[in-house]
C-alpha cells in the first residue's frame, strides 16, 4: 500500500479510537451513542440471532430490483436517445437539472398512489438511479472518437457489428461508471424511503430502533449499512481498476 494509503488507514483507525474513548469516558453518553466496540459485538449478535435477517434480505432484494430495472432501462433509453438527437436535445434540460429535484418529495405521492408496500420504495430507488445510468450511457456513446466509427465503416462493418465490436467496448468504461452510480443511488433511494416511512427493511428498522431509544440495535444497523455500502463501492472501484487498467495512459 502507498504512503497515503497507510496514513488513511491510520486516520480512520484513530477517528474510531477517539470515538471509542469519548464514549467509554462518558463524554458521549450512552443515550447518544454506544462505543464502536459494543456496536461490533451487538452487530455480531444481531446477525447470528437472525432476528433482522428478513429486513436485511428485503432491503437487498428491493435494491436489487430497483438497480436491475434502472440499469436496463437507463441503458436502453440512453442508447435510444443517442440515436435520436432531436428528442435528446429536448429532454437534455431535464437531465441537467434532474438531480436538483428532491426526489424524496415524491415519496408521499407514491405512497398514496401505490400503498405502503414495496412499489413506492422501488420507484424511488429506480428514479434516483436511472438518470445517472442514462447520462453515463449517453456520455459513453458521445465520446466514441469519430476516427473509430470511420474505421468501422472502412472495414464495412454493419450496424450490429459496429455496435457490438466498436461502440460498446469503447463506451464500456463510462457505462461502468453509470452502473456504479446506479448502485450508490439505488441504495440511497431505497434506504432513505424505508427510513422516512415504511413497514420493514433496514431503513425502517433503524427508524424503529431510534423511536424506541434502542441504541443497541440502531447503531449496529447503521454501521452495517455504511460498511456494506462502502465495501460494495470499494469492490466496484477495484474491479473497475482491473477491467480498464490497460486502457489508461500513464
Amino acid at each position: 500500500m502507498s504512503r497515503a494509503g497507510w496514513i488513511r488507514v491510520s486516520v480512520v483507525v484513530a477517528a474510531v479510537a477517539a470515538v471509542e474513548l469519548l464514549c467509554q469516558g462518558g463524554i458521549i453518553t450512552r443515550f447518544t451513542m454506544i462505543p464502536p466496540s459494543e456496536m461490533v459485538v451487538a452487530l455480531a449478535g444481531i446477525l447470528t440471532s437472525g432476528r433482522l435477517t428478513p429486513a436485511i434480505v428485503r432491503t437487498l432484494r428491493i435494491v436489487g430490483i430497483a438497480l436491475a430495472a434502472s440499469i436496463l432501462v437507463g441503458f436502453v433509453l440512453g442508447a435510444l436517445l443517442h440515436a435520436l438527437p432531436r428528442v435528446r436535445r429536448t429532454v437534455d434540460p431535464l437531465f441537467a437539472t434532474y438531480y436538483a429535484i428532491p426526489i424524496y418529495a415524491f415519496y408521499p405521492l407514491f405512497i398514496v398512489l401505490f400503498g405502503l408496500g414495496d412499489v413506492p420504495i422501488i420507484i424511488i430507488g429506480f428514479l434516483l438511479a436511472v438518470v445517472a445510468m442514462i447520462v453515463s450511457t449517453l456520455n459513453g456513446f458521445d465520446r466514441i472518437p469519430r476516427a473509430l466509427l470511420k474505421t468501422a465503416r472502412i472495414y464495412r462493418m454493419g450496424r450490429v457489428r459496429t455496435a457490438l465490436q466498436v461502440m460498446m467496448p469503447c463506451a464500456a468504461p463510462y457505462i461502468f461508471t453509470g452502473v456504479k452510480l446506479a448502485i450508490a443511488y439505488s441504495f440511497i433511494g431505497v434506504i432513505g424511503a424505508e427510513f422516512i416511512m415504511s413497514g420493514s427493511g433496514m431503513g425502517y428498522e433503524i427508524a424503529f430502533a431510534y423511536n424506541n431509544f434502542d441504541n443497541k440495535v440502531m447503531y449496529p444497523l447503521i454501521m452495517l449499512v455504511l460498511v456494506l455500502v462502502t465495501i460494495i463501492n470499494m469492490f466496484l472501484h477495484f474491479w473497475e481498476m482491473i477491467l480498464f487498467e490497460r486502457r489508461r495512459r500513464g
Partner: peptide
C-alpha cells in the same frame, strides 16, 4: 459508400484502446 479494396490511415489516432 465504402468500396472494397481501400485502406485508410486517419489523421487522428484510430487504434482501438481495448
Amino acid at each position: 459508400r465504402v468500396p472494397d479494396g481501400i485502406g485508410v490511415v486517419f489523421q487522428e489516432d484510430a487504434s482501438f484502446p481495448w
